[in-house]
Design a protein around this nucleic acid. Structure first.
Lengths: 360, 360
DNA sequence: TTGTAAGCGTTATCAA
DNA sequence: TTGATAACGCTTACAA
């Protein structure tokens, strides 16, 4: 491996000159600059970022903790975040938490060892992971995405409004009995979407609607199983307002599984039963029937999260520097106590999977 | 931040003792060991991996270059690889190449700067990226995945066999005219699947089949557009053996888009036209009609790739060590010239999207 | 405009 | 069984 010393020797200058040519932190005479550049080129020199990080105390890398990359929602998010980070000169260390707090703790510890400058965190559970709070306490900037945690900065979408728009639509179509298939009970996204749904139904004129609630995982298999379980319980055999005429899934994957199960039950969507999703991933536009869903501006969420995180990283570094310079050792004396929560709007996308309830 | 020095001071020992307590590389008396452990615990000490990497010349991290995380096929692959790597103590740096050679080169250079121990590379184009070959030349172990590159080690599936199984199935059902919607022309996966398809059709008794070929991107929009373009050209209005009775998509995403377009053309799948995919991602089982496809053992591919890469990394490190010890400076004098290509089997999954051709 | 040298947090070599 | 100390490759005062 060729090091800065090799370059210095080859160019007949000192290592600091080479360093300064590269960083541009002090003026270099054109002839030496050229000699150095030539040597760099010729030797194929590439600065060692481990060494740079050791002295600069910044690895220029971010930890990305994501629950489930097989879900295209998280896939696109991860992709957009990585791209945004790369544009700003940061690398992303990928961590697959699989909703497992133990894995999360494990990853967090590893990320701190690796001196990441910040954390992009998709919470998988309601209770903020202890290890995450320790990381925050240790002074690592964190931005929470998708699933909010009240006392941490984050970027989210207006889940309540998404639910509300769905509720209004279904109410206006005349639905009076719904089955809501949630993700994990108590998760903010689930609760917000559900509360929004209730509000929308009320606004839509249906003061009292029969609302059946089920919770579970954010996966297709969950939607599939809930529908079959409901069928076994006779939910779809009921008459009048007892029988749900629409299924509201808390995300697109659940809706996909539910769609399959409904079909196996010979229930046609939307003729016999309407169906809605949430997130607006690509496949919802392609399947049959195309899925009515609430579209998240994933790319905007992702870039906003990265921007916010980098802002906080810079603030954090400035703070550290000022503190060191002033020799004042009351940590965070002047840290802004305001915790930014960026909330982005969602869009209702009405497609084939909804219709008025069947006239019975 | 607390360093090894702080721990040494707190425990009343030297830094080397602390280091050895942690690494277990030399015997430590129980009392000192306990004192050191206590200090580590109390101070919340965490070794700095940048510093460790600087001296050990190994960052314990891998670069993962993947074209498109929004595609659940790559999402599950990336997930499985990261998990396998993490199990073996390696971190993964995520890079989204987006099939762009310039981005790839950019990432590669960054990864080398970061001293990654190895590269997991999903090629996006037929020609091996120049920057990749440079990285290989620089001595970084690489494992290529999914899309083979002849003179690099890699893990792949038997695309030819997958295509053949599809061909046999369609031939046996009586199809004599097919539309093949490929990914990028010339990509090994595309070519192998197509050649396999031809072989399978022949074996199935259809010596001569009308085979219409289209190429493009591995995306849903591509499948969608090709079908509509073909319709505009009157392909589906033809009669007899001119009209394709089955569409063979080179992957599941293309099939998904094609399915949508066929439906918009009022062509029922499979009654009017059969349809097949490739990869076997989750949603293929859920959509209507469920998709006949060739299932890749994604998790096995992913773990095999990580295993192979780690083997090569270890071999590489041993080699370096031996070389240094023996002072012999003919690099790679005894490097094994055999380039391992692991090929895993695929499984045909027959579902609703295929049927005999319509009788005309 | 340039060079010298201290230090970043580790591991590893050599002594004790 | 332990401790000094020299690297590792870089940045950055401080000098010249």
């Amino acid at each position: 491996m060729t090091t800065i010393k090799d370059v210095a020797r080859a160019a007949g200058v000192s290592v600091s000159t080479v360093s300064h040519v590269l960083s541009g932190r002090r003026p270099i005479s054109e002839p030496t600059r050229l000699r150095v550049m030539e040597a760099i080129e010729r030797l194929g020199y590439r600065p060692n970022r481990l060494a740079q990080g050791l002295v600069s105390k910044s690895s220029r890398s971010l930890g990305l903790l994501v629950p489930d990359l097989a879900n295209p929602f998280f896939g696109s998010m991860a992709e957009a975040m990585e791209i945004a980070a790369h544009d700003r000169g940061y690398s992303v260390i990928l961590c697959n938490t699989n909703l497992d707090p133990k894995r999360e703790a494990d990853y967090l510890s590893m990320l701190l060892s690796r001196q990441v400058d910040g954390l992009l965190y998709f919470p998988g559970t309601r209770v903020p992971n202890r290890a995450l709070l320790e990381a925050v306490a240790a002074g690592v900037p964190v931005v929470v995405v998708d699933e909010r945690i009240d006392n941490l900065p984050g970027v989210f979408v207006d889940n309540f409004d998404g639910g509300r728009q769905l509720g209004r639509l279904l109410a206006q179509l005349g639905h009076r009995s719904l089955l809501f298939i949630g993700g994990p009970e108590g998760l903010p996204t689930v609760t917000d979407r559900l509360n929004g749904l209730r509000a929308g139904l009320a606004e839509g004129g249906r003061a009292s609607v029969n609302l059946l609630l089920r919770f579970g995982e954010y996966r297709a298999s969950h939607g599939y199983e809930i529908i079959h379980a409901c069928a076994r319980e006779g939910v779809f055999a009921a008459v009048g307002d007892e029988r749900p005429t629409a299924v509201v899934a808390a995300n697109d994957m659940i809706a996909l599984g539910a769609l399959r199960a409904l079909r196996e039950l010979q229930l046609h969507v939307p003729r016999d039963c309407s169906l809605t999703g949430f997130d607006g991933v690509e496949f919802t536009a392609m399947i049959t029937p195309s899925l009515t869903t609430v579209q998240q501006p994933s790319t905007r969420v992702a870039t906003a999260a990265v921007e916010l995180l980098l802002q906080r990283i810079e603030a954090h570094e400035n703070h550290r520097d000022r503190e060191r310079a002033a020799q004042e050792h009351q940590p965070y004396a002047d840290a802004a106590p305001v915790i930014p929560h960026v909330v982005l709007p969602v869009t209702l996308v009405v497609r084939e999977s909804v219709a008025p309830p069947p006239r019975n």
